[in-house]
Amino acid sequence: MILTRILALVPFLGILLGAIFLGNDSGLIIGLPVLFAWLIAWIILTSIIMAIIYACDPANRTHDHR
């Protein structure tokens, strides 16, 4: 459980630190503004991270999944 909570901190670091390092970059990457692209990537990563946390969490195994 401790590990899953540490994993849950990762999106916070990714997003908040990302803004600090990339916020003032006015360039484009794959056609999108840098910070915009970074955040889109983190949205997808966050869903993946939450899916991992869900799979590892014993609370989701004991009950029915209706």
């Binding site: 849950a8 999106p11 916070f12 997003i15 803004a19 955040l39 983190w42 949205i43 966050t46 991270i49 939450m50």
Partner: peptide, 8 residues
């Protein structure tokens, strides 16, 4: 950014 973190 914020909704994403809120769901976490």
């Amino acid at each position: 950014a914020y909704g994403c973190l809120a769901y976490v």
